[in-house]
C-alpha cells in the first residue's frame, strides 16, 4: 500500500522536475491577476485590495495547480499508462492517495513560492502564522486534488476539463470570499458563499495572513479536512468501479 502511494507520488514529482513549465504556469496567471487587479483597485477598497486579495490569490494558485496536475489522468488514460496501474494489485485508495499527494506537493510548492511575495502585499504575518498558512494550503490542495481526480476520471479528453474549470471551479473560487467579502453581498450570493466548500479555507488563510484572530478557526479547519475526506472517498469509489 505505502509503496504504491510512494511510487505514484514520486512519479508526479519526477515528471514535474522534467517539465516544470506545466505546473509553474498555474502560478503565473494568479500572480499577474493579483498584482494588476490588486494595484488597480488599490485603495478604492478599504484597507487596500493588494492585501485583501492576497489570501484569495493563494487559494486560486492551489486550485489551479491541483487541477492542472490531476488533468494528467486524462492523458495517462489516453497514453495507456493508467491501464497498467489499474491492472496492478495496488489498492485503489493507494492509487488515489498517491496521485493526490503528488498534486498536493506541487500545489504546496507553488503556494510557498507565492508566499515569498508577501513583502509586496502589505501583510506582515509571523513565522507561526506563515506555517499555519502552508498547512492550510496543503490540506486544501489535498481536497482539490481529490476533486480534480473525480472530475478527470470519467473524461475522455482534456477539453472537457477546461469546461468544468470555467463553469464550476472558477465560480466556486469567485464565491469563496477570495475576491470580495460576504458582508456586503446580495443574499443569494451570501448563501452560496456560506455553503461553498472553498470558503472555510479562504477564511483560514485570511485570518492567519492578516493576523486577525478568528473564533471559528478550528471548525473551519475541520470543514477543509471534511472536504478532503469527501473528495478523496468519492474518487476512490470511482476508481474502484470497473467500467462497463
Amino acid at each position: 500500500m505505502m509503496l504504491a502511494v510512494y511510487s505514484l507520488w514520486r512519479r508526479d514529482v519526477v515528471r514535474f522536475l522534467r517539465q516544470p513549465s506545466r505546473i509553474v504556469g498555474a502560478l503565473l496567471t494568479p500572480v499577474i491577476f493579483w498584482f494588476v487587479i490588486g494595484s488597480g483597485v488599490g485603495t478604492s477598497f478599504e484597507g487596500g485590495f493588494l492585501s485583501y486579495y492576497f489570501p484569495g490569490s493563494l487559494a486560486l494558485i492551489v486550485l489551479f495547480t491541483a487541477i492542472f496536475s490531476t488533468i494528467s489522468i486524462v492523458e495517462d488514460r489516453q497514453e495507456g499508462f493508467l491501464q497498467g496501474v489499474l491492472a496492478s494489485p495496488a489498492p485503489r485508495f493507494a492509487i488515489v492517495l498517491g496521485k493526490a499527494l503528488g498534486s498536493t506537493t506541487l500545489a504546496v510548492l507553488n503556494g510557498v513560492l507565492f508566499l515569498l511575495l508577501i513583502p509586496f502585499s502589505g501583510l506582515t504575518p509571523g513565522a507561526g502564522n506563515l506555517l499555519a498558512a502552508v498547512a492550510c494550503v496543503a490540506l486544501l490542495a489535498l481536497a482539490l486534488s481529490g476533486l480534480g481526480i473525480l472530475i478527470a476520471w470519467p473524461l475522455k479528453s482534456t477539453q472537457g476539463f477546461h469546461a468544468v474549470m470555467n463553469v464550476a471551479l472558477v465560480p466556486m473560487w469567485l464565491l469563496s470570499g477570495a475576491l470580495f467579502p460576504a458582508t456586503g453581498a446580495s443574499p443569494w450570493v451570501r448563501t452560496l458563499m456560506r455553503f461553498n466548500p472553498l470558503t472555510p479555507a479562504v477564511e483560514i488563510l485570511r485570518a492567519v495572513l492578516t493576523n486577525t484572530p478568528a473564533a471559528n478557526l478550528a471548525s473551519a479547519a475541520g470543514s477543509v479536512a471534511l472536504f478532503a475526506l469527501v473528495t478523496l472517498s468519492i474518487a476512490t469509489l470511482l476508481v474502484s468501479r470497473p467500467s462497463r
Binding site: 509503496l3 504504491a4 510512494y6 511510487s7 505514484l8 514520486r10 512519479r11 519526477v14 515528471r15 522534467r18 517539465q19 495517462d76 497514453e79 495507456g80 499508462f81 493508467l82 491501464q83 497498467g84 496501474v85 491492472a87 496492478s88 494489485p89 495496488a90
Partner: peptide
C-alpha cells in the same frame, strides 16, 4: 498484463518505469 499500447510513462526512464511497476506489485 501486457497491453497492446505499452503502459509505460514516457517521461520516466526505463529503470524508473520498472521500479514503479515493482512497487505497484509490492516489491521492494
Amino acid at each position: 498484463v501486457v497491453f497492446q499500447s505499452p503502459a509505460v510513462d514516457p517521461w520516466l526512464t526505463v529503470i524508473e518505469n520498472l521500479r514503479h511497476h515493482g512497487y505497484l506489485y509490492g516489491m521492494s
